[in-house]
Write a protein that binds this DNA or RNA. Structure first.
Lengths: 208, 208
DNA sequence: GCACTTCCGCATCGATCGCTGCAAAAGTCT
DNA sequence: AGACTTTTGCAGCGATCGATGCGGAAGTGC
């Protein structure tokens, strides 16, 4: 009767008492909680309550608060923020910028989700105890800028952008708009207004 | 011998034991500390240590932590962020935008000062206990957007901008760039690169 | 059945959070 | 001098912070 194989797969069931909660669902809730309240503003009690998990279970499953945030950020990158990767695959620089800004507006102003961007409002200025997370997010943002720059560099090489275009400067400009949109969304500015602004900003391309 | 009038002014010295510290200097240090660490990241112990003042003196002089932040924000508005008011007084819309973005770059990347903008990184996403301050800063940012919009509306009325220009959308665009610059500065991006980007963005005016 | 491994619930840890009571100190008033 | 007003230094308040120890529960292996 021993359920050695509960499914058709050849995998053995893991030893010990099985988890009573879904780690993916708990991590999703943790990500949303960090997104809404920021790293410092998200207390352990609030996090575990939102995750529906005891503190002990959280620690055994994810490590500690900082580890939990790292995993939440990874989930955010591959989930709500996946529009960045998709945007970089667009065929033209103009389409890349359009997809990036439209994706930013949509993700930062989605109803029934926290407004703004976890990578921006997760830990922009912090106390000394959260300095590691602050630096982690700064690196996360800079990574996005770098990927954008390399994509624009490719566009210059391909003749999609004028040879006089500085891809670093253009990437900095578009990412600055994206970060600014994230701040505006955190302030509660509506999706339509931000999308109109993004459309207007993209009407002239390349902007310089 | 009683120093009833310590100065030539006719003002009487205030009753009770005089303060042993300069409230303006202490408030300046508090503003810098909030600027660097954010509202939630700035602990009372850290604040009072930076101010060179005991907790008791801080409470009698400023109220509580939230009141202290309000006064620090006022000081920030009239100090480091005064470039906004000056920019609005420029004679043309283009000069307004140029002065605003240049002032933002200069203030958010000044050496020997916290990088970024207190109004952005002071409390972008917070726990429930800091929700009041978060909303206060959102209103502070929106006030800046509104003043910019009204200035651009005036420019449209004066014929300085085309009659087809939507001043609200243009104000949203310029303020979005400014907030984005603040985020980039908080990440440690250098002044020169941000200034170059601002110059490039302002090269074509109006942008739409 | 029994040893073994892992997870859960409860209680609680030391540290820090924002904040305050109290008495002495340092002034001005009459 | 003596009453009055305000500030200062010290100690400590209750609450919450992130993080753990421990015993029982719930599975596995043999």
């Amino acid at each position: 009767m021993g359920g050695v194989e509960t499914e058709q797969t050849g995998q053995r069931a893991p030893l010990g008492r099985p988890r009573a909660f879904d780690t993916e669902a708990a991590l999703e809730r943790a990500m949303l909680f960090f997104w809404e309240h920021g790293y410092e503003g998200a207390s352990l009690s609030g996090l575990t309550k939102a995750m529906g998990v005891s503190t002990t279970s959280m620690y055994t499953a994810f490590g500690n608060k900082e580890d939990l945030f790292r995993k939440a950020l990874e989930r955010y990158t591959e989930g709500p923020s996946a529009y960045l990767t998709r945007a970089l695959e667009e065929p033209s620089a103009r389409a890349v910028a359009t997809a990036l800004l439209t994706g930013t507006v949509r993700t930062t102003t989605r109803p029934a989700q926290p407004h703004g961007c976890l990578g921006v409002q997760g830990a922009l200025a912090t106390g000394t105890s959260a300095a590691t997370v602050r630096d982690l997010l700064a690196a996360w943002r800079e990574d996005g800028c770098n990927r954008l720059r390399e994509r624009f560099r490719q566009a210059v090489d391909e003749g999609d952008l004028p040879a006089t275009t500085d891809p670093g400067l253009l990437g900095r400009y578009v990412s600055t708009l994206a970060f600014g949109i994230a701040v505006q969304a955190a302030s509660g500015i509506g999706r339509d207004e931000l999308q109109q602004m993004a459309d207007a900003a993209l009407a002239a391309w390349p902007p310089f």
